[in-house]
């Protein structure tokens, strides 16, 4: 994955019990895939003292027990690992996620269409045509940040974030797309809603979608939302898992 002459990642302390391995500072799919590959390499290395890792767009956050492994020696081990060739992350799971677009389910669809001078149907078609990659899951439980948005749909975030947006919001912000699981504040543009729970505390598995997964969206009629929502609440995945 990383070329032999690729620059070493920066290792930055995050207090005394975590550090960040930073591979880049921009939204870059190559950087993100390097982060995910490095995350797996770290897991395979099974370094004593590492408690959990959080892959993000640009860096891998590593929580560690400083009484087991100190910053200096952990840093050296991670740098040694970073010079080795990484095994690229192969996508092994693809999720087909149903979405009710527009209307009360996606209150910003028409505004996004106007912003780009296209029809609402065009926005939906371009959003559905996307082949998305789960770059990271973060901020709130099950919030999946997706790369792969059609660049013609890139839309600056709202100047005034909304204090609350519904659970299952399917939205876009800048060049990013996302599936939001829980209700919460958001400055992104709401295109639709999915009944899928990417996080459901009373279901096994609790989390449906993981970093490195692929996602596509398909439209369902508003009339079907309630039934799908009940099934999802009862613990059905509702999203269809396709193994490539």
């Amino acid at each position: 994955m990383t070329a032999p002459d690729a620059p070493l990642p920066r290792i930055l302390p995050c207090g005394d019990a975590a550090l960040t391995v930073e591979f880049g500072r921009s939204l870059d799919e190559t950087v993100n895939r390097t982060v995910l590959a490095f995350d797996r390499a770290v897991a395979a290395e099974a370094i004593a003292g590492i408690q959990e890792t959080v892959p993000t767009y640009r860096s891998l956050l590593i929580h560690y027990d400083a009484l087991t492994v100190d910053f200096g020696s952990l840093r050296q081990r991670l740098l040694a690992l970073a010079v080795k060739p990484l095994v690229p992350v192969a996508t092994t799971r693809r999720w087909r996620v149903p979405v009710v677009y527009g209307g009360d389910y996606g209150i910003d669809l028409d505004d996004v269409a106007r912003t780009h001078g296209i029809s609402a149907d065009d926005v939906v078609a371009r959003h559905m045509a996307g082949d998305y990659f789960v770059a990271m899951v973060g901020f709130t439980p099950g919030f999946a940040y997706l790369s792969g948005l059609d660049p013609t749909l890139a839309t600056s975030r709202r100047s005034e974030p909304r204090p609350s947006t519904p659970p299952g919001s399917i939205h876009i912000g800048g060049a990013q797309a996302a599936i939001q699981c829980l209700a919460g504040p958001s400055g992104w543009h709401l295109l639709g809603r999915t009944p899928v729970r990417t996080f459901h505390p009373r279901r096994a598995p609790v989390f449906l979608i993981a970093p490195g997964d692929a996602v596509t969206f398909y439209a369902v009629p508003a009339a079907e939302f309630a039934a799908l929502d009940r099934a999802a609440e009862a613990g059905e995945p509702v999203a269809e898992l396709v193994t490539p």
């Binding site: 995050c14 207090g15 019990a17 975590a18 960040t20 767009y57 956050l61 929580h63 973060g138 901020f139």
Partner: peptide, 27 residues
Amino acid sequence: VSDGTVTGSIQVPGSGQPIVLMADRGT
């Protein structure tokens, strides 16, 4: 570009007024 937080992260939004992230922080 979003990256990970820890309990104790001192993040600074546009207001310039810091927020120390605590136990229930966003990840």
